[in-house]
């Protein structure tokens, strides 16, 4: 597994899910209440990711802005090891006492995100928890697919095959939608209404279907027949992106809790 891809997945797919989860998750109330602060994570060769808390809101973007804590990892490998060795996003900030609030922000927000993404038993058991899991996990899956298509050696073949296509994922419960656009040179993704009509719209009619799909526990063909899962448009495109999502999942959660 190319380590650069793993690093990019953490930077550009997992961290952005913080911005999706924070406004939805009551557990973030405390975290958001802290003082304004920002952390920028830099890995050589990859766009930086900046996590910022300002005015009780959490945002994640990939612009390098001045201010806040700058975490510069010497290599993608070092960054990935940091992400994998520790629980959540507990970063090696020991010694940096000047900005404890930034450290705390990343650690606490990261820990909560990890729980929401990986506690599969809770996702199955608790609908309220599942409604947090869905937007976070769909974001990681779609943003992760964009990253995979850009950085994986096989990504170019799929990008060529589905050049210019757009896929839109729509969950009705919880209401959430996210799109993936293969038209730009660097595949793009975003929340809400896509910039143009989708070539494939994947619609999950209910919570159990979207959860089942995200946990890879759903009989998709059966759901399609029932209409609980609808794919309007280019089925092979939807299918291929589904496979990419699964690959992303395997990279990020090699030992997901059962």
């Amino acid at each position: 597994m190319p380590v650069r891809l793993q690093a990019a997945l953490h930077l550009h797919a997992v961290l952005p899910a913080l911005g999706v989860l924070a406004p939805r998750d009551p557990a973030f109330a405390d975290i958001l209440a802290g003082p304004d602060t920002a952390v920028t994570l830099r890995v050589p060769g990859l766009d930086p990711t900046r996590v910022q808390r300002a005015g009780g809101k959490l945002t994640v973007n990939h612009r390098a802005s001045p201010g806040g804590l700058l975490l510069h990892f010497p290599s993608a490998g070092q960054f990935v090891r940091t992400m994998q060795r520790r629980t959540a996003l507990a970063l090696p900030l020991a010694g940096i006492t000047a900005l404890p609030s930034a450290k705390q922000l990343l650690e606490r927000a990261g820990a909560r995100l990890e729980t929401v993404l990986t506690d599969r038993a809770a996702v199955r058991r608790d609908p309220a928890f599942a409604r947090l899991h869905v937007p976070a996990a769909l974001t990681v899956a779609v943003a992760g697919s964009a990253v995979w298509l850009r950085h994986h050696p096989h990504g170019a073949v799929l990008r060529d095959r589905f050049e210019g296509r757009l896929v839109h994922f729509v969950a009705l419960d919880p209401e959430f939608s996210v799109w993936l656009d293969l038209a730009p040179k660097v595949p793009a993704w975003g929340l809400g209404t896509p910039p143009r009509a989708a070539d494939a719209e994947i619609r999950f009619a209910d919570l159990s279907t979207v959860v089942g799909e995200l946990l890879h526990e759903n009989d998709s063909l059966a759901s399609l027949g029932h209409g609980h899962l609808r794919i309007r448009g280019h089925l092979p495109l939807a299918e291929q992106i589904g496979i990419v999502m699964q690959k992303v999942d395997h990279i990020l959660q090699p030992a997901a809790k059962p």
């Binding site: 063909l221 059966a222 399609l224 027949g225 029932h226 209409g227 089925l235």
Partner: peptide
């Protein structure tokens, strides 16, 4: 649809292969 509900309870995919509803316009 009713037969499909029975099918999906006892057959993976309900109907698999090239005749799966997913490959046409389900519903």
């Amino acid at each position: 649809q009713a037969l499909f509900r029975r099918a999906a309870a006892v057959i993976p995919g309900g109907i698999y292969g090239h005749t799966t509803p997913a490959a046409t316009v389900p519903g």
